[in-house]
Simulated assay, not measured.
Amino acid sequence: MGENGRRLVPPISPMTARTVDVPPRAPGLAYEAKWDGYRVLLFARPDAPHLQSRRGNDLGPGFPDILRAAAELGEEAVFDGELVVIEEGAVNFAALQSRAQRTGRRAEAAAAAHPAHFIAFDLLQLDDELTMTRPYRERRALLEEIFTRRDLQSPWALCPMTTDPDRASEWLDPAWGAVGVEGMVVKGLGQPYRPGERGWRKLRARATADAVVGAVTGPVTSPDALLLGRYDAEGELLMVAQSAPVTNVLRRELGPLLTPAGPDHPWTDVQFRSGWGTRDILAHRCVVPELVVEFEADVAFDAGRWRHPVQARRIRAELAPEDVPHFPAGPAD
């Protein structure tokens, strides 16, 4: 963590969360909506506004609108939050990703076409006070005071928070994924902010869906992972998800049912990347697209495809490929 006198200096490692499977319920907990965007730290300073990614990179050149808002806030502060682009009532991750790659005039044009929002959920510094040592309840109160005092409007937004676990559980409904809320983050009301520490807890909304096995990694007779597809309205098979390594039980069940495909398979000459945003090419073997599987996934879904690896759960022998929802149906299909 950088510090110049009492002024925080980027880059700073944000406090992070570990994944849990069940929402914790106990006195003294706060629940925040988890948004599907870029985790960022925003340094609101009239002389040197700065937008830092989770990994410490400078995102400012791609988001001049956010830098202007930070410079014009009227007071000096360092915020933790989520950067999103919201269009037609939902987060548009592709537009956000595209904006991050632009600079100069192209960045200004993208800002006009696809305005970004900064969703604030924590406060690391206010004027000359390092607020990180304060408990979360006090940091949240200060954050709310700033929003009220400055009457902050777009591109500023305050992250929803509740101390009611039942209300927070609504954010785990996959329907919220359609608008960009992918779960919740759980914080202790008495917790200080500790940069770099995994001291919070997070849960992602999850849902099940069906798709056709179009290719595999590893041997066809004992696949390691699955490349899953759905047909579009024109009958073209399009990839929608890549699975995590399948269980040994499912691997043994899949092997006898998969048939290596011939050269006429639509994915024969297609290159798939090993992960969203990576450049590594995945080595895959095409199979006859006749087997349907059910998988479990989070709600990070964009342009017809799940961004994160999914968990293949079982073979749907009772379903034919034509029974699977057409591309680009998503988490709520």
Rank of each mutant, 00 (worst) to 15 (best):
R149K: 12
L124E: 12
I146R: 01
Q153Y: 00
T131L: 02
Y136M: 06
M161I: 12
D127K: 09
P155L: 05
C159I: 03
D127H: 09
E145M: 12
T162W: 02
T148W: 00
L142Y: 03
F147M: 15
M161H: 07
P135M: 10
D151C: 07
W156H: 10
D127W: 02
A141F: 06
R134Y: 11
Y136T: 06
R140E: 07
M132K: 01
S154K: 02
D128W: 00
Q125S: 11
E144F: 00
L158C: 06
L143K: 08
A141K: 02
L142F: 04
L152F: 01
M132N: 04
D128T: 08
L143D: 12
L142H: 08
C159T: 09
D151K: 04
L142W: 03
D151W: 00
S154R: 05
P155C: 05
W156M: 09
R139K: 11
E129L: 09
S154V: 06
L152M: 06
S154Y: 01
Y136Q: 07
I146K: 00
T163P: 00
P155M: 03
T148H: 05
Q125G: 06
Q125D: 10
R134A: 15
L126Q: 14
L124K: 00
D127I: 01
L142G: 10
D151S: 11
D128E: 14
L158I: 08
L126C: 10
P135D: 15
E145D: 15
R134H: 09
C159S: 14
T162S: 07
M132I: 07
Q153C: 11
Q125R: 04
R149V: 14
R139I: 14
E129R: 09
P160W: 02
D151Q: 12
A141L: 13
D151R: 08
M161P: 01
L124S: 05
R149Q: 10
L124Y: 02
L126E: 13
T163K: 03
L142D: 10
I146L: 12
R150L: 14
E138V: 11
C159P: 04
M161C: 12
L152S: 07
M132F: 03
A141N: 06
L142P: 06
S154I: 03
L124R: 00
Y136H: 13
P160C: 04
A157M: 05
E138P: 04
Q153S: 15
E145F: 07
D127L: 05
R134N: 07
A157D: 03
L143Y: 13
W156E: 09
Y136F: 15
L158N: 05
L152P: 02
M161Q: 15
M132C: 08
T148D: 05
M132Y: 02
F147N: 12
Q153G: 15
D127M: 04
Y136S: 06
F147L: 15
A141H: 05
T131R: 03
F147T: 15
R150P: 03
L126P: 08
T131P: 01
T148F: 00
A157Y: 00
M132D: 03
W156V: 13
D128S: 12
D151I: 04
R150E: 10
L124Q: 04
E129Y: 04
M161K: 08
C159Y: 01
T163R: 08
L130G: 05
D151A: 13
F147C: 14
R137Y: 08
C159D: 11
W156L: 10
R134V: 09
T133W: 00
T148L: 11
R150H: 14
C159H: 03
R139T: 15
